[in-house]
């Protein structure tokens, strides 16, 4: 069964106040058309899970500029002065965490795990409020699973059943976020028929993807 919808149909399902996972690294690997449509629809008060601040007006930076973000769960904001300013002014709440911890919390949620133990953050500000565990000679933080209402993915190629292939460093958080949201929407640059992608080359199996949209629509 085809999962293909228009971008308008897809963003209709995203509501005010939702938690949205967006993959990407400084804008690379982030869906463009879906973000444009969200800005047009002005769906606000979003909690956004994204690696960094990207750049002003680019990727997640566009959602920030449109004033649609109320909270960011992120590892780095420094590349986007508009985001840094909004955080300083209290317009956007920030939860800052290490990148390896962010991805493993998302993976844990998608993998049905109750959390993960990591040494990263031990003895730093990151450990505040968290359960600290001593096992053998090592000290770990218990980091809990992180889910979202919706994940908006970006893939180079996808088939109508949702199988996805990425390109170069645009893969980053995409395959992990695909597993950890109630609704998964993938924007693809090239849409092909079922069977056109060699099963050996599929990176994200279509079972994780609910809706597929064409980026160029």
């Amino acid at each position: 069964m085809s999962k293909v919808k228009t971008i308008q149909e897809a963003v209709e399902l995203i509501e005010e106040g939702m938690t949205v996972m967006l993959p990407g690294f400084l804008g690379v690997g982030t869906p463009k058309a879906l973000i444009d449509a969200l800005c047009e629809k002005r769906t606000g008060n979003l909690t956004v899970i994204y690696n960094d601040g990207a750049f002003p007006g680019v990727g997640i930076g566009k959602l920030v500029r449109c004033g649609l973000v109320s909270k960011m769960i992120s590892t780095h904001t420094g590349t986007n002065p508009e985001l840094v300013k909004a955080i300083a002014e209290g317009l956007i709440e920030i939860e800052l965490l290490p990148q390896g911890t962010l991805v493993e919390r998302i993976r844990a949620a998608g993998a049905g795990l109750g959390g993960i133990l990591t040494s990263t953050g031990v003895g730093t500000e990151v450990e505040k409020g968290k359960t600290i565990m001593e096992l053998g000679d090592a000290t770990y933080l218990l980091e809990l699973p992180l889910r979202a209402d919706v994940a908006l993915l970006y893939a180079y190629k996808g088939d109508t059943s949702g199988n996805l292939v990425y390109r170069n460093t645009a893969r980053n958080f995409n395959p992990i976020m695909a597993t950890a949201a109630d609704l998964v929407i993938a924007e693809v640059e090239h849409l092909v028929d079922v069977g056109d992608i060699d099963p050996e080359h599929v990176v994200t199996p279509g079972i994780f993807v609910d809706i597929i949209v064409r980026g160029c629509d």
Binding site: T77, P98, T120
Partner: peptide
Amino acid sequence: YWIPGRGGPGMGGGMDLVVG
């Protein structure tokens, strides 16, 4: 990774790199 009061830039992958 952080200048209190000024904010940012954030640790990115730095904490994991220093640990690992």
